[in-house]
């Protein structure tokens, strides 16, 4: 078990013929993920070739899904057209749309999110590294990698990771794998202020997943999504949870790289979020080097196993 995706998930790539999308499609194919189709309007009928792989390209998401049975999409479409690509996934009735694109106008995402209300399509991102459910092969190959995360740092196991930041997610996964602690699924929900799947959405899924025995939740300054998730954890989650919040030294009012990472009011600071984490029984990593160790401490305190 894992959450959201597994090794059988059939994936299509929107923007497969672009440099960025193409490069990461190759890496996903190498990882053993089932990339079954590409979508580039006007290039339908062509193929995306990589080694022995020959991935058919379609003009529309609907055509691709109908022909190949793809249920998930990775969006690598440039920012001005990305919201359109996301809505095309929803219209085609896919289960999952993972929007990697960074720099989508907020107004476009406000509209897209509103238009997706009631749709069966789960949106992850945008501006995210994507999702990885590690496989059982060498360097975790054979799993499902949608997006841009390095597959090889993962290891199949029992820890769930959820984060707004890409490289900070890799840092956590790498720490876990180095300690011999594998992961069920690692989800990057993205650094934008308007995103599809929240920390809480992912935490609930990890909580329901019997294979996930412990959780690392990584957040940032800005918004109150981490606080919302922490309060839910206090009331509902019996699994050990470790947390980290980036941005303790960020000055107020400055956007720290991510559009969503801005200290707004006094209750929006890293210190305020860390205080809520502690109050909710989440073991806080003292530094970013301490994330895996913090989870080990949390598990020990509850007498829970992580591997």
């Amino acid at each position: 078990m894992a959450i959201i995706v597994n090794e059988k998930t059939k994936v299509l790539v929107q923007g497969i013929t672009g440099e960025f999308g193409g490069r990461h499609t190759k890496l996903s194919l190498d990882y053993g993920s089932a990339i079954v189709a590409g979508v580039t309007p006007g290039k339908g009928g062509q193929f995306f070739e990589h080694g022995e792989h020959r991935v058919p390209i379609f003009n529309t998401v609907r055509d691709a899904a109908t022909a190949t049975g793809a249920t998930a999409s990775a969006v690598f479409v440039p920012p001005p057209f990305a919201a359109d690509a996301i809505l095309e996934c929803a219209d085609a009735g896919l289960d999952l749309c993972v929007a990697i694109t960074e720099g989508i106008p907020i107004r476009d995402m406000i509209r897209a999110k509103r238009a997706m209300l009631g749709s069966k399509t789960r949106l992850i991102g945008p501006n995210c590294p994507g999702i990885v459910t590690p496989g059982t092969g060498k360097d975790s190959n054979g799993g499902c990698r949608i997006g841009i995360a390095p597959g090889y740092i993962h290891k199949k196991g029992h820890v769930g990771v959820v984060s707004r930041s890409g490289t900070l997610t890799y840092e956590a996964v790498f720490q876990l794998t180095s300690k011999g602690l594998g992961q069920t699924t690692s989800v990057g929900i993205g650094g934008d202020p308007v995103n599809g799947t929240s920390h809480l959405d992912v935490i609930k899924m990890f909580n329901d997943d019997p294979e996930t025995w412990g959780i690392i939740m990584i957040g940032e300054i800005g918004g109150n999504a981490e606080v919302e998730a922490a309060r839910w954890i206090k009331a509902n989650c019996k699994k050990p949870v470790a947390g980290f919040i980036a941005g303790a030294t960020a000055p107020a009012g400055r956007r720290m790289g991510h559009a969503g990472a801005v200290v707004g009011g006094a209750e929006d600071t890293a210190a305020a979020k860390i205080a809520v984490f502690k109050e909710c029984g989440i073991e806080c990593a003292v530094t970013p080097s301490d994330m895996a160790d913090a989870l080990v401490r949390a598990a020990k305190a509850r007498g829970a196993k992580l591997a």
Partner: peptide
């Protein structure tokens, strides 16, 4: 590299 990692590098 990366906004979250950059922020937490400042923090550490």
């Amino acid at each position: 590299n990366g906004a979250g990692l950059a922020m937490s590098t400042m923090d550490i």
